[in-house]
Computed example of a mutant assay.
Amino acid sequence: MYFYFYDKLTQDKQFESQLTTLETRLIDLGINGRVEKLSIFKNAKELIEDGIKKGAHTVIAVGDDHTFTTAVNVVAPYDVTFGFIPLAPGSRYAKLLGMPVAEAAVDVLSKRRTLEVDLGKIGDYYFFGALQLPAAAELRLQCDEQYTVSPTSQTNRISILNAGDVLTSSTPLLADPSDGRLSLNITPQVNGGLLSRKTKTNGRASVFPAQRIDIDSTGETLKVSVENVFSVNTPCVAEIVPAQMKIIVGKGRLLDNQSDAATS
């Protein structure tokens, strides 16, 4: 059974026509299924887990990048295939996965071309893309209990990547989500100038691969952002969970395409 999770974005009237066309295409291709919409009475976790318990073998998140991250965290512990239908252009994860917008994504889903990918985990949260960390002088990052890394500047861009950090900058940082490791990236940046609040990259990133990264701070508690959706306070541990999810992908994706396979 296919299970479609509609986030609150789908309730916007501007998407009514798209959803109608999309749902018709799902029926035409024989991959329609149960649809549940986010409401004030049930959250994403309740809706998706109920769908899986009732026999869903494929869970499709319909919405935006926030929807994607939320659904990944819920689906991660279960042995189901995961897919994503972006409703609006500009989705960073859609580009990473090679998924076109709305109705066009349905044709990609119907082919069921999947990648088996690692996920990262921090606290109670799974993540597909990356963690974003503050470049505070107090930050300490211990990799595989072997060595410790600290930022050298408060303008550093610090990310812990699984598939990549595609949300916090127009310049994405990508990694291989099938290599069994996280990637700690520290990218030097400088302020854009007196009239700009933006920063720009100033040199090559330092990259530290690790299966486990202990995150701590010597002073006040710091917040680690989980793809701009969740947050975890220090001290905490980020670790890799190998081959944790099967995810549907399309052509032209930014992800490594060496390990894809058609599945039924």
Rank of each mutant, 00 (worst) to 15 (best):
Glu46Ile: 11
Ser153Lys: 06
Asn156Trp: 12
Val59Asn: 05
Ile213Phe: 12
Phe41Trp: 14
Arg212Leu: 11
Ile186Gln: 02
Ile158Glu: 05
Thr10Gln: 06
Met1Cys: 08
Pro235Tyr: 11
Pro100Cys: 03
Lys42Glu: 10
Pro177Ile: 14
Ala88Cys: 08
Glu227Asp: 09
Pro177Trp: 12
Val249Ile: 02
Ala104Lys: 10
Tyr93Arg: 05
Lys251Ile: 03
Ile122Tyr: 08
Ser150Thr: 10
Gly90Leu: 06
Arg140Gly: 06
Thr21Met: 11
Asp12Trp: 13
Ser178Pro: 11
Leu97Tyr: 07
Ser259His: 13
Thr81Tyr: 10
Thr155His: 08
Pro134Val: 02
Lys121Gln: 09
Phe208Lys: 03
Asp256Thr: 12
Ser231Val: 01
Val166Lys: 03
Gln189Met: 12
Asp179His: 14
Lys95Tyr: 07
Ile248Trp: 07
Val106His: 13
Lys42Ala: 13
Lys251Met: 08
Ile247Leu: 06
Leu97Gly: 03
Tyr125Phe: 15
Gly193Gln: 09
Asp216Phe: 13
Thr263Asn: 13
Ala135Ile: 04
Ala102Pro: 00
Val62Ala: 05
Gly203Gln: 00
Leu174Ser: 04
Phe5Gly: 03
Ala135Val: 04
Asn257Lys: 13
Asn32Cys: 04
Val229Glu: 02
Pro134Asn: 08
Glu220Gly: 11
Phe15Arg: 03
Lys95Leu: 14
Thr81Ala: 04
Thr10Ser: 04
Phe3Leu: 07
Thr67Cys: 08
Pro86Asn: 02
Asp28Ser: 14
Cys143Asn: 05
Leu119Met: 01
Gly33Gln: 00
Lys200Glu: 06
Val108Lys: 05
Asn202Arg: 15
Pro177Asn: 06
Ser264Ile: 13
Leu184Arg: 03
Tyr2Cys: 03
Leu87Gly: 01
Pro86Gln: 02
